[in-house]
Structures are given as structure tokens and as C-alpha cells.
Computed example of a mutant assay.
Amino acid sequence: MAWLALASLLVLAAPQPAAALDFATDPVSGYALGGNDPVAYFVDRKPRRGQQEHELRWRDTIWMFVNEGNRAAFEKAPRIYAPHLKGCDPTALAGGFVTIGNPSIFALHDGRLLLFHSEINRFLFLADPQTLLEGAHDSAERLGCAR
């Protein structure tokens, strides 16, 4: 019984992440996109790890950037650079369930950053993006993945 009380205290004392898992937030560090720069996906066409000296808090989540220019771009237009569907996998959403995307498995589609749980989901999405995106949007609000 004492171990249960101790375990409860440890859980309560543990640092809490900035947000649940919106925007593929790392549950340990609290960084969106696991610490990757959201603007880099558009500029460099690949994920790049941000630096702590260029971080910014937006929507109760901490975002990191590789430089001040990317930080400023995000600050001006966060909805453009933040993952669409709050980082939920659009293929899974189209199927009616929520899976948080992996910041390393992504696609840029119609000017939006989309994250996928797996390479297979990314492949399926790219085979029929319009249909799957429509299905994802239909489920997003109900499943907590709408902005």
C-alpha cells in the first residue's frame, strides 16, 4: 500500500509537458514536432532540429527554430507553418481514428505540412490525397484534431 502512495506522489511531482500531443509534441521535452523547426519543412524540405535559443510558445506548446528568421516567419503566420490537423495523421483520421503523426514522416500538400504515423499511411495518402483529406476533415472536429 505504501508503494501505491509513493507512486502517486512521483506522478504528481513529475514535470508535465506543455500540451498533450497536439502538433506531435514530445511528451518528455514538451517541444512541438519533437523539437524540429516547422518552417524548415517548407524551406529545406526536411525536418531540422531547432535550437533552444530560438524557441517560441504558441498555443500552449513550445516550438523550436534553427534561426531567428524562421522564428519570425512562424510568429507572423503560425497557422501556415504548424502541422495541419494539429499533427494528426490524415490517413488515420479518414479511417475514423486518431494517430499522432511522426515528425520524420511528412508531406507538404497544398501548402500544408501533414504528418503521418507510418510510411504506409503516407503512401496511401499520396495515392489519393483529395479523398483522404476530405475524410480527415470530416473526422477532425469530432476526434479533436481540428484547429
Rank of each mutant, 00 (worst) to 15 (best):
R48I: 12
R48T: 11
R49F: 13
R49H: 12
G50H: 04
G50N: 06
Q51I: 03
Q51G: 08
Q51P: 00
Q51T: 10
Q51D: 10
Q51F: 09
Q52K: 13
Q52M: 07
Q52I: 10
Q52P: 05
Q52H: 11
E53G: 05
H54Y: 15
H54R: 10
H54G: 06
H54E: 09
H54Q: 12
H54A: 07
E55P: 00
L56H: 09
R57A: 14
R57K: 13
R57Y: 08
R57C: 04
R57Q: 10
R57S: 13
W58Q: 10
R59W: 12
R59D: 15
D60N: 15
D60L: 11
T61W: 05
I62H: 00
W63D: 05
W63C: 02
W63M: 03
W63V: 01
W63E: 04
M64F: 03
M64A: 15
M64V: 09
M64N: 12
F65L: 11
F65D: 09
F65S: 12
V66M: 08
V66I: 15
N67Y: 09
N67V: 11
E68W: 11
G69W: 07
G69C: 01
N70S: 11
R71C: 04
R71S: 07
R71G: 03
R71I: 04
A72P: 00
A72M: 11
A72I: 07
A73L: 14
A73M: 11
F74M: 05
F74T: 02
E75G: 03
E75W: 07
E75C: 01
K76E: 13
K76R: 15
K76N: 09
K76C: 01
K76S: 13
K76D: 11
A77K: 13
A77D: 15
R79S: 08
I80G: 01
I80R: 13
I80T: 13
Y81P: 00
A82V: 04
A82T: 04
P83F: 06
H84R: 11
H84I: 03
L85M: 07
L85H: 05
L85F: 14
K86Q: 13
K86V: 08
G87A: 08
G87N: 00
G87T: 02
C88D: 02
C88N: 03
C88W: 01
C88G: 10
D89W: 01
D89R: 00
D89C: 05
D89V: 04
D89A: 04
D89N: 13
D89Q: 03
P90K: 07
P90L: 04
P90W: 03
T91P: 00
T91G: 00
A92W: 04
A92L: 09
A92H: 03
L93Y: 00
L93E: 00
A94M: 06
A94I: 02
G95T: 08
G95A: 15
G95M: 12
G96M: 05
G96R: 09
G96E: 05
F97C: 01
V98W: 02
V98Q: 03
V98L: 12
T99V: 14
I100L: 10
I100S: 13
I100E: 08
I100A: 12
I100P: 01
I100R: 12
N102M: 03
N102K: 10
P103V: 07
P103G: 12
P103K: 11
